[in-house]
């Protein structure tokens, strides 16, 4: 079994993000970068699948970005990916083009499962996984907080459903079954990603990162989303402190909040 795990390099969300003076780009040069937290959940789950139900699983991390992304791919190898693919582009493409590239890689590698983060904490789009699933025509399960491998059922109407997954939805936890190959997008509660230990980091240095130029995939980027401006958001509220519950209730009633 092969599992493809897309990895995005994102600015560390614990750092304040600034917009440049032209209001078109983010000032990111001093901001440390990390693996998108949801992608770390996806990778961790892939490793747990290999440690548990599918010992012969091969895990391939894939990054689509500039050369700096090799760092996050190295970290992915240290966390347990077997090998990595780096598709070189100058900046992260929009979700549609990410999905096209992932489809092309999927056609090359024929994975059984694409396991990815449900959203990236920089653009917060929450689109790429659904796009890839649609493009490939594969079953999808988004916002997944649990994955279970189940024995194949001989009953023809439900034959071939190999995975049972729990999805976090607005109305509660939904459970569905999926056939493979499939696309799964991870939510934070899927697991707690591990930190790579030193021996794993050293071992990762010897694992291969294959670099693939876009031209080799026969893809020309055609952005669907064009950014024309950015704006920082700040709080306009001024907190009025109250000293007691009585004063609080007075204020709330006075201002018709209750």
């Amino acid at each position: 079994m092969k599992i493809l795990v897309p990895i995005k390099r994102v600015p560390d969300p614990d750092h304040r993000i600034r917009v440049d003076l032209q209001r078109i780009a983010l000032e990111l040069s001093d901001v440390p970068h990390i693996i998108n937290p949801f992608d770390a959940n996806a990778l961790e789950e892939a490793v747990r699948i290999r440690e548990g139900p599918v010992p012969d699983a091969e895990i391939i991390a894939i990054g689509i970005g500039d050369p700096a992304w090799q760092q996050e791919l190295r970290t992915s190898l240290a966390m347990g990916a077997d090998r990595a693919i780096h598709v070189g582009v100058s900046g992260p493409p929009d979700p549609w083009n990410v999905a096209r590239i992932l489809r092309a890689i999927t056609e090359r590698e024929s994975p059984d499962l694409v396991l990815m983060g449900k959203q990236a904490v920089d653009d917060d789009s929450n689109q790429a996984g659904q796009f890839v699933a649609g493009l490939l025509g594969w079953p999808q399960a988004t916002f997944v907080s649990q994955i279970e491998f189940i024995p194949l059922d001989p009953e023809p109407s439900i034959a071939g459903h190999q995975l049972r997954v729990a999805r976090e939805t607005d109305t509660g936890i939904e459970t569905i079954r999926l056939r493979l190959p499939a696309v799964i997008t991870a939510d934070l509660r899927l697991n707690e990603p591990r930190y790579a230990a030193l021996p794993a980091i050293l071992k990762a240095k010897r694992k291969p990162i294959e670099t693939i130029p876009l031209t080799e995939l026969n893809i020309e980027l055609s952005p669907r989303v064009e950014r024309i401006a950015l704006q920082e958001v700040s709080s306009s509220r001024k907190c009025q402190y109250v000293q007691s519950v009585d004063e609080l209730l007075d204020q709330l009633f006075l201002n018709r909040c209750l």
Partner: peptide, 23 residues
Amino acid sequence: SSTYAKDIVGRAAGLLGGAMVSD
């Protein structure tokens, strides 16, 4: 925007050419 729309309309957008903006 809801988990329903992200899941289902997101997939439909993948089938319809991906010119999508969220939220």
